[in-house]
Simulated scan of single mutants.
Amino acid sequence: MNPQQFLDAATEATGLTDFGDDALFGGDGWRTGLAVLLESIEREANLHTMGEMVVQGELTQYLINRLRIVEHHRRHPEIRERDITPPLVIIGQARTGTTMLFDLLAQDPDHRVPQTWEVDQPLPPPRTETYLTDERIAAADATFALVDSVIPEFRAVHQLGAQLAQECVRITASHFVSAIFPTQYQVPTYLDWLIHTAQEQGHLAGAYTWHRRFLELLQSEAPGTRWLIKTPIHCWTLPELMAEYPGALLVQTHRDPATVMASTTSLLATLRRLGTDDIDTPTLAREFEEIILDGLDRSAVARLDGTVPAAQVVDVRFGDLMRDPIPAVRQVYDRFGWPLTPDVEQAMRTFLETHPREGGGHSYTFAATGLTLSAVRERTARYREHFQVPIEQH
């Protein structure tokens, strides 16, 4: 797990050497992130053979993508002349309906989403005329066969698909300052670095700069009206998000934090089977307790102190979204003054019919987390009271 061997492999694969250490690409914090990640994987991840293969291939590919993105930007500085229209950003925590909302809003042609296939293989830049037929779509779908073979029940927990909208953590992964890594692997040292040191040293801000560079590339030959993006980590990093995209419009989904902890812990335990057999649910819950629960509290603080202007955000409750998604979606359109046309609404209803809701095979209990319910309630009291989040029975 020597960083240099990964750098050398990416350089050999591309013939490129410029990884973009300057401020234009978010600085060189990615090198620290890569080093901390690899050390954490080596000491803590306890990978099985399949997991070792996945790590080797995945991290090398992120570096290959980074080299190619930097090179493309150097050759085509004009792609930065088209600004990123203030994006619509879903910032709810995991297991609060964000994926369903993301996929439904993506049915609106005015919303340009980063699809999985183009995030995985961003170069050459996707083109409008071949966006639905690009050969990378089939290649991306083929990779999910590996997931199905190792964790066949995962699709019951979370949707997979090359043409489904992809989260921002997969974009910032090629900057190596991303929550995707502790989500996939047992790397508590890296997670601690991410939510403390990386923020203190400005590396999270650098990750959002890289995020912008990535979107600039994707929209260069396949533009849209506005970007639609999402990931739960935005709850933790709202100051950095709003600094990079000050005009961003936010949608925050809300659910009982105790249920969020229980469901997220179960999801992560399932996902991590792709890399290891060493899975202990209470340990996993303790790993993510701070980033989830403190992230919720931080989101309340950001609303109270004006980091997120009130006019730029709408709140959607999980219960409302699950009862009837379309009225919940209409909340977003009404809040920002957009028409929800009959054609778009029908496209959303068709998506719901053709993509069964995740969770049908997903059972979980709060007791399995090993956390104390009263402590979770106390820690998230400010969040629950501010957003009037109903408590669920546990």
Rank of each mutant, 00 (worst) to 15 (best):
D103N: 15
P86Y: 01
I79M: 13
T99W: 04
M100N: 03
L101Q: 06
R82E: 11
I90S: 03
R66N: 01
E78W: 04
L67T: 10
P114M: 14
I91M: 06
V70L: 07
D83I: 11
A94P: 14
I69E: 10
D103K: 00
Q115H: 13
H73R: 10
T98H: 01
H76Q: 10
I64N: 01
V70Y: 03
T60P: 02
Q61S: 13
Q93E: 15
L88S: 01
Q61T: 12
D110M: 00
N65Y: 01
A106Q: 03
P77C: 09
R112K: 14
D108L: 06
H111M: 14
R74N: 10
R80M: 12
Q93V: 11
D83V: 12
R75Q: 14
T96F: 02
T60K: 12
H111Y: 14
R68T: 08
I84N: 04
R112H: 13
T85Y: 04
T98R: 01
N65F: 03
P114D: 11
R95G: 11
I90A: 06
T96N: 07
Y62L: 15
T98Y: 01
I90Q: 00
I91H: 00
L104R: 02
L105Q: 04
R82K: 13
P109L: 10
Q61D: 14
I79H: 04
V113A: 15
P114H: 12
H111V: 08
H76W: 03
Q61Y: 08
Q115A: 12
E78T: 09
L105K: 02
V89S: 05
P109Y: 01
P109K: 08
A106W: 02
L101F: 04
Q107G: 06
A94V: 14
I84D: 05
Q115Y: 13
A106D: 10
T85L: 09
D110S: 06
P87T: 06
H76A: 08
R66K: 00
L101E: 02
P87E: 00
R75L: 12
T85H: 09
I69N: 08
V70K: 01
E71L: 00
E81Y: 03
E78I: 03
I84R: 06
I64C: 06
D108H: 05
A94Q: 14
L101K: 01
Q107V: 10
M100G: 06
L67F: 07
T96M: 08
G92R: 07
L101P: 06
T60A: 13
T98A: 09
N65P: 03
R80I: 09
I69G: 04
L105H: 00
L67S: 08
T99F: 09
M100A: 11
D83H: 12
L67Q: 05
T99Q: 11
L105V: 06
L88Q: 00
R66V: 05
E78P: 05
N65C: 02
P77Q: 09
H73I: 12
T99V: 12
I84Y: 02
P109E: 05
A106Y: 02
V70I: 12
L101S: 04
T99Y: 07
R80N: 13
L105A: 03
G97H: 02
T60H: 05
G97Q: 06
L63H: 04
H111F: 15
L101W: 01
R74F: 04
L88I: 10
R68A: 05
